[in-house]
Amino acid sequence: MIGSRQLVSRIQTLARELGFSQIGVAGVDLSAAEPGLMQWLEKGFHGEMAYMAAHGLRRARPAELVPGTVSVITVRMDYLPRGTPDDWQRIEFARLDRPGEAIVSMYARGRDYHKVLRSRLQKLADGIAAEVGPFGHRAFTDSAPVLEAELASRSGQGWRGKHTLVLDREAGSMFFLGEIYVDLALPPSEPVSPHCGSCSACIDICPTQAIVAPQRLDARRCISYLTIEHPGPIPEELRPLMANRIYGCDDCQLACPWNKFAKKSALPDFDPREGLAGSTLAALFAWSEEEFLSRTEGSPIRRIGHERWLRNIAVALGNALRSGDTSARAALESRREHPSELVREHVLWALEQQIA
C-alpha cells in the first residue's frame, strides 16, 4: 500500500490538476480553539446566525461531526477573475467614489463557489479512493459546522490575519477554503508563522469597525453579514456606513498589503457575470423577481432572495441620494409601494436621505 507521505504528495498533484492552489493536512484536536469560539458565541458576535450557536463545540471537534475522522485535508482555491488587472485593489476602492454604482463583493461576481469547490472536492476524493481503495470521507465547503480558518491555518495554508481571514505570503487572502474529513491517518502539514506584525490596515479601514480586536469580528456590524446573513431591517445607524455596497464587503482585503500577491484563478467560473460589476444601483433595483432569479442562477447571490436584494440596494440608493445623486430618487419612488414591509421601510428611509 502507498505510504502516507507519498499519498499526501499524490493528493497534492491531484489537487493541482483540479484547480486547487494548495492542500494541507490537519489533525482533529482543535481543543485549543474551543475557549475562543465559546467567548465569541457568548458575546453574541454571531448575530442571527443561529446555526453557529446550535452546533456549539462540534465545530471544534471533527471526529464528533463525522465519526471516524482522524485527519482533515484542507484545500485552497484562488478566485480573482482571470482578467484581473495588477492594480485591482485601487480599481475596487475607486468604486466607492461613484455612489450610483453598485458594489458586489469580488468573490460573488461569478459562479457560486460552493458548486465549484464541491464538485472538485468530490473528484479529489475519487482520486484518493483510486489510490487507497474505499475510505470514509465527507467534503465541506462553508456548508457545515466546520472551523475552516482554524483548520486551514493549522494545515499550513496561511495564518489568521487580524481580519480573521487566512493569509498566505504568496497568495494574500483572495481564495476559498474547503475540507475533506477522512478516516486516513495522514501526516499533518507544518503551520506557518504569522506575518501581520504591527499592521492594522484591515482594522482601520473597516467601515463599521466590525473588527473589534485583532482576530475578533463582531459579525453584527460586518457589512458582509448585514447584506447576506441578516434577515431583517438593517440597523439605521449602520446604513450610512454601507455606502454603495450591496452584497458583501472587500475593504479589509483591499487594504491588506499581502493581497498585492493575490493570485488569479485559472478557472472561467469566477469571471464576473454581466450586471454584477460596474452596474448602476438603479438598474439592479429595477430587476423583477423573475429577472433576479434568472440573472443569479448558479450565483451565490441567489440565496439572499429578491426581497433582501432590494433592501440592500434601497440602502445604497439612500446613501447615493445623500451624496447628491438625485437620480436615485426616481428609482426609490418606483418601489415606494412594494408589497414587502421590509423593502418599503428601507425605501422610505432612503427617500428621507435627500439633502434639502
Rank of each mutant, 00 (worst) to 15 (best):
A330E: 15
Q354D: 06
F292G: 01
K260H: 14
D168N: 15
R58F: 04
E333R: 14
M77W: 00
A219R: 05
K123R: 15
G47M: 07
V166T: 14
L124W: 02
M49G: 00
L14V: 08
P240D: 07
G110M: 12
C196E: 11
L151R: 12
V25W: 00
H338L: 04
S31R: 14
S334H: 05
A282Q: 07
R98A: 12
E333F: 06
R154Q: 13
S294Q: 11
Q215N: 14
A328W: 08
C256L: 01
L348M: 11
S21W: 03
L293F: 06
L310Q: 08
S327K: 11
R98P: 03
R221L: 15
W88M: 04
H338S: 03
S265K: 04
E236W: 08
A130K: 14
D250Q: 08
A255R: 05
R98K: 15
K43H: 13
P191F: 13
E291N: 00
A282C: 01
P145G: 05
G36P: 01
K115F: 11
A53K: 12
G100K: 13
T164E: 08
A201M: 01
W159M: 06
R220Y: 02
D325S: 08
T84Y: 00
P235S: 03
E148M: 15
E297P: 01
A108D: 07
P81A: 01
V166Q: 07
